[in-house]
């Protein structure tokens, strides 16, 4: 953390903006940059899937049924990671599957983050009945195991991409809400909030333009860390067969499909498993190094 010490010492007059200092701290953390790059790589891969996937993810042929990866006997470089039980190219399905995983992870965190931030600000700043209502709702939702809650909701709504997003948002906002409420309670008692009231700013303006800028970095960091968790939960739902439905390629369903052949053809389940592992690991480590660089309590 040499960069942190340096930035805490002298505040350079010309380039003293907080964001630029944070960026410098972030870039000096090699490990963090590496995993952020891997994470960004997954995103690029997902966006470019139609162009970079070697085969149609849904085109199968029983001639290639359970064909092993290229480096094993019987494999071919045309299908580098082998094929599944329907003879579909595993690499292409992983590339397409990244779309679903990342899309769900990012969209859920964005929507839930927005809802949670708003409710957390309201609860923390206004207090009273609003706080009681929101906080009790949070307490109740936190008492449910996340997966069971999602399975229940999916059971009611039926499978489908939109329904997964709705089900996960229904729970995920709680995480942001709790964080924002706690941070707001802390910031609300600062003198500059009192000063803002003395200046005649409306409660809405105080919440969004005085308090929010002071807590937004914490929200961003937690949101990044949550993307990984959401991806895992989506994969779990798909694995259980109540998430993304075939033929849409999703990592969770791929693992489920392959588990019957685990002993005979380990690659069918293992490669999507490794993909989930790498994506979630890189998302988490990227989030952590973002926190190290942007958390005001660590930098200022």
């Amino acid at each position: 953390m040499t960069a942190t010490a340096a930035s805490a010492g002298a505040v350079p007059r010309a380039s003293g903006s907080i964001t630029r200092q944070n960026l410098r701290t972030f870039l000096s953390d090699r490990f963090g940059v590496l995993f952020t790059a891997i994470f960004l790589g997954f995103i690029v891969m997902a966006i470019l899937a139609p162009w970079i996937a070697p085969h149609d993810p849904n085109a199968g042929s029983l001639l290639r049924r359970l064909q092993p990866p290229a480096w094993l006997p019987g494999g071919s470089w045309a299908y580098p990671l082998g094929c599944d039980s329907l003879g579909r190219d595993i690499l292409s399905r992983i590339i397409w599957g990244a779309r679903v995983s990342i899309f769900i992870g990012v969209v859920v965190v964005l929507i839930a983050g927005a809802i949670g931030t708003f409710l957390g600000l309201v609860a923390g700043f206004l207090g009273g009945i609003a706080d009681t209502a929101i906080s009790r709702m949070v307490d109740v939702l936190l008492a449910y195991p996340l997966l069971i809650f999602a399975i229940g909701l999916m059971g009611m709504m039926g499978p489908g991409l939109m329904n997964i997003i709705v089900a996960l948002v229904c729970f995920e906002w709680v995480i942001t809400c709790r964080l924002v409420r706690a941070q707001t309670l802390d910031v609300r008692n600062k003198e500059y909030v009192e000063a803002a009231q003395a200046i005649g700013l409306s409660p809405l303006r105080i919440m969004f333009s005085e308090i929010l800028p002071n807590i937004v970095s914490a929200v961003i960091v937690v949101a990044t860390l949550r993307v990984g968790t959401i991806i895992i939960i989506e994969a779990s739902l798909s694995f259980l067969g109540i998430g993304v439905q075939p033929p849409t390629p999703a990592w969770g369903t791929m693992i489920a499909d392959g588990r019957v052949f685990m002993l005979a053809a380990w690659w069918v389940s293992s490669f999507p498993g490794i993909a989930i592992f790498l994506l979630v690991l890189s998302a988490n480590l990227a989030g952590q190094s973002l926190r190290d660089a942007f958390d005001p309590r660590l930098t200022r």
Binding site: I18, I199, G200
Partner: peptide, 21 residues
Amino acid sequence: LRGRELAITFQDAQMALNPSL
């Protein structure tokens, strides 16, 4: 009225100015 016709300044400007703005 506050801020427009009646203004107040506080003891410690470091605390009374928003550090993030």
